[in-house]
Design a protein around this nucleic acid. Structure first.
Lengths: 142, 142
DNA sequence: CACACACTTAATAGATTGATTGAATGAGCA
DNA sequence: TGCTCATTCAATCAATCTATTAAGTGTGTG
């Protein structure tokens, strides 16, 4: 039963620190932004989960409301198992939730957080596209 | 010279669509959230780049201001080449920028976007941690 | 009760990723 | 100019991830 999900980065970190620059070339600011390691890990997990076009697309679909797997697969023009697995992964990462409704199983975004995060990422992404066609105003289709 | 960086999802997508549920079991809402594919791709790239604890940590350090590679490596307690490669990746994803200052090369977050995205992710992550000690007060179940 | 539908699970194989070591580049300095 | 420091480059290798096909589970229905 190989649970797990997105955790493990190739892993193997803490060697011995190098002597580094030396004395005090750069102002010795402690700085120490030190985000709680747990938060850091969780955040990276979430980011990683969003870091795949297929998964992200699923999430954008889900932003419009709950949908069942078949529906998603149809919209994405993809296999059922594939979509199912992605949903499973997203669920294990606590990004979506599923609920059985009669014959179907509806998936939905778990939080408002997620929706907001996705939107934030997308909107920032739009502004960062190399060769952009930026609809100046608000992409208001007819 | 295998450039590239984070793009390629395992690749191989568009098979033939399954007949799907059938007639009209679920209201046939077109819905069409259709985020520009480019934006979708870019967003997923960014997310993926943030989706690693080590890289994310680097970014949190950079949120406090530019730092050189050695400094980062020292703070992260990690090898120079490792840090350098991560920075290279982050740079290729247009997430950080580097600038030579005398003997050192200082890296910094490229955008305010990135900083905001990181912060958003982190703050949301904090709220989603299973066993949390939540500083703020919101749904404070006791 | 048996069939069909909706979805999940299993297992394999391909591909990508990232760590690691050692060498190379480039700038400052004696 | 030669040397040292700071950083990058290159290539290998292990580990992980995802796609894919086929079989399994469970629910509703005739």
């Amino acid at each position: 039963m190989t649970k797990k999900s997105i955790p493990s980065p190739r892993t193997k970190r803490p060697p011995e620190p190098d002597p580094a620059c030396g004395q005090a070339e750069h102002a010795q600011v402690p700085l120490r932004v030190v985000v709680d390691p747990e938060a850091l890990k969780r955040a990276s997990e979430i980011f990683r989960a969003l870091g795949d076009p297929a998964r992200l697309r699923i999430l954008t679909l889900l932003m419009a409301g709950p949908r069942c797997v078949t529906e998603l697969a149809t919209d994405l023009n993809d296999n059922l198992p594939a979509v199912s697995q992605r949903l499973k992964l997203l669920k294990s990462e606590r990004i979506v939730s599923n609920r059985r409704q009669g014959k179907h199983i509806y998936y939905a975004l778990l939080d408002e957080h997620i929706a907001q995060l996705v939107m934030t990422g997308l909107s920032h992404a739009v502004e960062d596209i190399p060769g952009i066609r930026r609809p100046t105003a608000k992409s208001l289709p007819d």
